[in-house]
Structure formats: structure tokens, C-alpha cells
Write a protein that binds this DNA or RNA. Structure first.
Lengths: 339, 339
DNA sequence: AGTCTCAACTGATCCGGTTCAGTACCTCGC
DNA sequence: GCGAGGTACTGAACCGGATCAGTTGAGACT
């Protein structure tokens, strides 16, 4: 049916010969109306094309019907990383079922991010938020705790205070990855890491150091800002050393691709002389030559879990930390036994 | 100042010894209060950490304070394309200034997208929407017209009915690009296009055909679904022809990169035997070997313009169609005079 | 027959803003 | 010294839902 005027419960009430209150009870599954009346009201609401005015609903104490996500990154970095879009679409899968919208804000830094949380809270604009890119001793965590704004932290474990977190076990898969490289007889391995201070970067580095020490490997870690440019520079520096590594792991796909280009430019054969691996699989890893061995994390499902947990938190359920399904190693042509 | 309870205008009114109405006038720059009172109220509001409850504001006839963006694409496709994130961050630049939030929804198809518009309209959740991925004879356009939901179409010209559109002149830059290839002495050129039915795909194809006919070039267009896989297949088919093209243009960066890989795999030298170009520049184009010549569109600014126009539309201003700054050709190592 | 109970519903109030119809007071002109 | 006109404000209604204290009427029980 074509609707050209917004329908309110008052309209339904008048048409049904009931009071607004009764209609409200009927539509919300509350007791206080007979089953036959409820069905009649529901049918009429559907026919008349009624949807609750979200503002009125939010104002009368219920929920705002929205979750917030602030991304404190430069537009360029965001554009490159498929991570966020996958995470977002995973979240929406869970949120669609409970009529919750996603409010997105892109800001420059954590100060603006915190200001956004304060404003959203004061405006009652969101029922909860997702915190991403967790850092060690993250300043945003105490703010959300103080505001008592329901929040799910995408990342961990650790450094998320009393806020519940959902994370992927990077440390566990790091062990698998390094053991795999060691089994291929790599003795000198390097890691081109993302931004220092990001918790997942540090957790990966820590796991990398521990497992390579245990296996008696020579290991190096270089930190970058995730851009392919710095990835390329780091690769050049690593390959120019007296005894260069025979395997390099990159913290994202674009840096790994940049690494392949540098190897090519320096006449280093991949994977003959140098094995290359990417963290986070993507089509990018498949289309370059040679295709890249990668750690594949199911980010869409990750997003769905995070959103489900936030919904549960609002329902007053006890939400504890949660570890997502472990990533898996996808072996392609860029890793081999070194010559 | 630390705020732990939400402040309302009633709180300010009480503290200032005024009525709610006077406070509202003062805060909104409306006449009806003295300048000294206005300043006093503004100062108190700031001190007390007041922000208007968005629901109350929306309910009392004003705006919802949000724009909506629906993306009807698969999560995977979204993840690859840096386009959307750049567009979004550009939009937010304009929207931040007028305290407007962005509501994001990822859906599977146009039916769900249309349902989302109807729901948002009935819920009064958004003040306006951005329509992306315009198709010819787009079904979504009449729905938005019928709902009288303010909308800005990202794309055009044409096929956006009475809705105002903002677009980038792809046809114009296509002339530049093909003339450039012709000047390099390419006589057989091909185009690996995106999804058929998308207006920008068709406009580019049309311009491509016209200008290559005018210059007496042999031209071929293959349509794909934007995925690197189909880009690779199209490239294989083109290069296997009796007289293969000496230059191929791809409608996005990932397909172009896939094309380079295929050329490499088939032993075709780039740019010696084959020139490759990408539409939409990105870091990806810079990091592959050879770096790709690309058409660079300023998408962030594009997004800012679109949002500014939607804001103007809501202000009751007459908003007409608008053509964004033309893209520019960034020449890198993947294009050359054919051997 | 009277009372008690409960289901089914009504009417009013509230949420936090905006806005409109008044009202008190001041100033000005004659 | 009185009305006109304007400024600075108050009080109440309103937006569209949720919710709570009552009200009504039917059926059960004594």
C-alpha cells in the first residue's frame, strides 16, 4: 500500500475505536489487551503502513535504536583496509534483526572520538558503541566507563577495563605461523608490524618474539604506520641487511603486496629466496603474483558477534569477554622452503 | 567538567531562574530574550555540559539530525572498494559542521534498500538520504520521489528523475584518456567495464565508443562484476584474441592489478606490449609493479559536495544538479608507446 | 444477592525539546 | 498622565510514543 502521510498510533487508535494506550500495548506484545484485539491492531498497523516514530520511542524512555561506531583514522587509511567494511556488514547482520541502526562517525583523533562519545551520550543518540583499534592503556575506555555508555570493545584481551571485549586470538595463530615457517627451514624471519601502541600489534609482536625465541630463530620486528609506502621502506631495509631474513610477515595485505614489489625491484625471488605472508586475507592476496600466503580471519562473523554481544548487554544479560573463532592459515605461492 | 547526569533545558531554566521557553529561545538564537540573558544561558549550558536530546528535538518537529546511506552490495565487494569509505569521510566533513550524523545500512538488494527508505521515512529517522550506485531507469528514484524524502543522487547525469544529482564527468576524462592512448600510437584498445546497468558504467562505455570511433581506433568493451577474478578472465580472453589490444582500461583498481598479473602470467610485457590503466587511483596502483597509470577522482571532495548539497536542500534552498571537479590522469609506468 | 477478582481497557502524565498566545513592564510621544 | 508599541519573558500546548493509576464489566465464589 502506498503511504503518503505518516501514520501514528493515534490514527490506529481512532480507526480501531481504542485508546492510544491500548494500541501501544497491543503493538508491543504487552499484556492489557485481548488476543483478538491485539491481532486486529497488528493487522491495521500493517495495512496502514505504521512504523514507530523513532524519536518518540527514544524520548519516552526506550532505546534510541542505534549503535555508534567512531573511526579515528585518516580517510586514506580507512579506504585501504577492507577490515572495517567487513566488520560493519557483519555488525549489521545482527543489528538488522533487532531494528537497530548504525551511526557512523569518522574523526581525526582520539580527542574528537571522546568528544563524540560525550555528545552522543548527552544527546541520547545511541544506546551503545563499538570501540575499535584498541590501544594499550586506552584513554577512551575510562571515558566510556564514566559515562556508563554500554560498549563492546573490538579487541583484546587486556586494556579494556571493565568493558567487555571480543577478540580474535592472534597470538595463537602466530605460533602456528612461525612453527610453519620454521618447519620450512627458515632461520631468520622478520615481521613488518602495524602502528605501535595498538594492542593487537603488540600482542602479535609479543607472541612472535616468544615463539621465535623458543624455536631458536633470529627474529626482527619493524613497526610502520600500515601504509604500503612504509611497508616498502621496511622491506628494503630488511633485505639490505648483511644477513637478510628469508621470510617476512606483514601486518596487512597492502604492505605485503608492497613487499613483493620491493623484492621484485631488488631482484629477490619470491618465494625462492624470500617467503612473504600477509595478515588478513583479501582478494588482493589472491591477485598478485605470486599469490600470497595469508592469515585469514573471519571478520564478518567477528562483527556479527560483537553486535550480538552489545545487544545482549542492553538486554541486561551478563556479557563476558569472548574469543572469536581462531584465524586459519591460507597457504598460497608466496611461501616455500628457502633455497 | 565531568558530567554524570544528563542536563536538560529544564535544569538550565531552573538554575537561571527562567522558563524553559526563554532558555530554548536563548540557545537557538531566536528573538525573545535580551542579549545579556542569552549570553548567560549559553555560558551556563556550556558549563553544565548540555547537549540537546536528539529525540526530543526530532519529535518537536525539527530535524532528525541524521542522513542515511544504504549500500546494496555484498560485504566482499564493499570491502575491496576504497570508494565508499572515501565518499563517507568526505560526507562527514560537511555533516560534522551542522551536527548531522550518518546512518549506515548494508543490505543485499534494491528491494531491501527501498524497504529501508520506507521505514526510515515512517520512523522519521533521517532527514535525507544519499543514493549511490545509480542505475539506468533506477527503481529507487520514484520511491524517494513519492515519499518526498530529500535525497541527493551520487551519480548522473540522467536517470535521477526530479532528484538533484552530483556527478563526476567521466565522459569528459574518457576523451582525454583515449586521446592520450591514441597519441601513444595505440590502435587497438579495450575496456574492462564494471557492472552493466550501472549508469556510470554505461556513460563511460558510451564515451569510450564515441571517442574511439572518432579517432578510428578498434575498441572492445567487456563487462564484469568488478571482481578481480572476472577482471583476470576478461584479460585472458582479450589477450588470447588473434589481434589482441595493446592497451586495456579497467573500471577499478583491483581488476587492473589482476590484469597486470595475467599479463605477467602470459608472458606479456607491461608496458612494452600492453599498456594498462585503472579508473580510480589508490595506493594499490602505486605499489604494484609497474605502478599503474590511473584516472584520479577526488572522491573525498565529491562526498563533501554531495553532503553540502543535501544540507542546502533541507534549508529550503533551490538545489540544482552539480558537476564535481573533473578527474585527472595520473601517468605512471604502466602505459607507454607499444613496441 | 453481594462481593471479590481479574481481564480489558481508558485517561492522564511523562520524556525534552519547540512554539505560540499571553502578560508584565518599560519607554516614548504628545 | 495615558495609551501605543515594543521588549523580555511566562505558561501551556504539542510532537508520538510508553506507562501507570484508575475504571468498567463479566464471571466466579460464597
Amino acid at each position: 500500500m502506498r503511504v503518503t502521510k505518516r501514520v501514528t498510533i493515534a490514527d490506529i487508535a481512532e480507526k480501531a475505536g481504542l485508546s492510544k494506550g491500548a494500541v501501544s500495548y497491543a503493538l508491543n506484545g504487552q499484556p492489557g489487551v485481548s488476543e483478538s484485539t491485539r491481532q486486529r491492531v497488528l493487522r491495521m498497523a500493517l495495512e496502514m503502513g505504521w512504523h514507530p516514530n523513532s524519536a518518540a520511542k527514544a524520548l519516552s524512555g526506550a532505546r534510541a535504536g542505534a549503535f555508534g561506531l567512531v573511526m579515528a583514522r585518516s580517510p586514506d587509511t580507512l579506504g585501504i583496509e577492507p577490515f572495517f567494511m567487513k566488520l560493519i556488514s557483519g555488525m549489521e547482520t545482527a543489528m538488522a534483526a533487532s531494528q537497530t541502526a548504525l551511526l557512523l562517525q569518522v574523526v581525526a583523533d582520539h580527542d574528537m572520538e571522546i568528544a563524540t562519545y560525550r555528545r552522543w551520550w548527552a544527546e541520547r543518540r545511541v544506546d551503545g558503541v563499538f570501540l575499535i583499534d584498541l590501544r594499550r592503556d586506552d584513554r577512551r575506555v575510562p571515558v566510556l566507563e564514566e559515562l556508563r555508555l554500554p560498549a563492546m570493545v573490538v579487541g583484546g584481551p587486556g586494556h579494556h577495563g571493565t568493558l567487555p571485549g571480543v577478540w580474535i586470538d592472534d597470538a595463537g595463530v602466530m605460533v602456528v605461523v612461525v612453527e610453519y615457517l620454521a618447519a620450512l627451514r627458515h632461520r631468520r624471519i622478520a615481521r613488518v608490524a602495524g602502528v605501535a601502541g595498538m594492542l593487537h600489534t603488540e600482542l602479535r609482536t609479543q607472541a612472535f618474539d616468544e615463539v621465535s625465541a623458543r624455536l631458536g630463530l633470529e627474529s626482527t620486528t619493524v613497526t610502520t604506520d600500515y601504509t604500503p609506502d612504509q611497508g616498502a621502506q621496511a622491506t628494503r631495509r630488511l633485505l639490505s641487511a648483511a644477513s637478510p631474513p628469508t621470510a617476512i610477515m606483514y601486518d596487512n595485505d597492502v604492505m605485503a603486496v608492497a613487499g613483493v614489489s620491493v623484492a621484485h625491484e631488488m631482484g629477490v625471488d619470491v618465494p625462492g629466496e624470500l617467503s612473504i605472508m600477509a595478515w588478513d586475507d583479501s582478494v588482493l592476496c589472491e591477485i598478485v603474483h605470486p599469490p600470497l600466503t595469508a592469515v585469514d580471519r573471519d571478520i564478518t562473523t567477528y562483527g556479527t558477534h560483537v553486535a550480538e554481544h552489545l545487544l545482549a548487554l542492553l538486554d541486561g544479560q551478563q556479557v563476558s569477554d569472548f574469543e572469536n573463532a581462531p584465524p586459519r592459515l591460507v597457504v598460497r605461492g608466496s611461501t616455500a622452503r628457502p633455497r
